[in-house]
């Protein structure tokens, strides 16, 4: 059984998968792991090739769009230690097409689909739970601390939705930011973040939302457990309506 290693980057992962699919007669029999550079590490290291990585994703998208979407969501999760599963999943996706996502009795498919689903779920959740604050200069800023690295697809969503606004997304844990202004979307990292001043009417609008949030609940049906299961407390930190609770 052959063992392969890659450099730990996303491009490295995808390009080594592309390489193995090309060179190995039975990719489901080999393993792939991140290179640790320890003394007794065994395995053949595959070099990183960004164009190869890109072309793999492109071919998969043509062949099995759903499976490519799963791969994309899986990559958002930045999970380590599942490289072999991913290799087997991609190999199966080329073999079976989009039907592969139903092959949940296969351990590799199940692992990849589960992780992808969790990342996809958080992305969907954040589309609702993200909160923008209006700044003094008229731009809007939303801070978040998601479990998965979802800033790219999230920014895409808001670039279609809040087109006429100038806004920023900021992933506090990863120090990553997205900026939308005049029809262009940019990404970058921020080393030193200082919270800018809020616009004058911001606190007033927040108070309106807090008041609405309180009165819209039916007192006779109070159900904090259901509220928490739908909206886990880890997201409350940036929710305007949950401040001061």
């Amino acid at each position: 059984m052959n063992r392969y290693l890659y450099d730990g980057t996303a491009d490295g992962l995808l390009s080594s998968i592309a390489w193995i699919l090309e060179e190995e007669p039975d990719p489901e029999k080999v393993t792939l792991a991140k290179r640790m550079d320890t003394l007794f590490e065994e395995g053949f290291t595959i070099g990183t090739d960004a164009t190869l990585a890109e072309s793999l994703f492109f071919r998969l998208k043509q062949h099995a769009p759903d499976a490519a979407h799963t791969l994309y969501s899986f990559m958002l999760a930045e999970k380590e230690g599942m490289e072999t599963s991913l290799l087997h999943y991609v190999s199966l996706a080329f073999k079976h097409g989009d039907k592969v996502k139903g092959y949940l009795t296969h351990p590799a498919v199940r692992d990849i689909v589960n992780v992808a689903q969790k990342a996809g779920r958080e992305l969907h959740r954040m589309k609702g739970l993200l909160r923008f604050e209006k700044l003094q200069d008229g731009a809007y800023l939303a801070k978040m601390e998601p479990d998965y690295n979802i800033i790219h697809p999230l920014a895409d969503h808001f670039s279609r939705r809040l087109r006429a606004q100038h806004w920023f997304l900021y992933d506090v844990k990863r120090r990553m930011a997205a900026r939308w202004n005049n029809g262009t979307l940019q990404f970058g990292t921020i080393e030193q973040f200082t919270t800018p001043a809020l616009s004058e009417d911001e606190k007033k609008v927040q108070a309106l939302w807090q008041a609405f949030f309180k009165t819209i609940a039916i007192p006779d049906r109070k159900n904090p457990r259901l509220q928490k299961s739908n909206m886990p407390m880890k997201y409350w930190k940036y929710l305007v309506e949950k401040q001061g609770e």
Binding site: K127, G128, F213, A217, R221, K222, Q227, E241
Partner: peptide, 12 residues
């Protein structure tokens, strides 16, 4: 898209 959940657990 649900944006919040009220104290009665219903989605807003």
């Amino acid at each position: 898209i649900c944006h919040s959940w009220a104290d009665d657990g219903r989605c807003i």
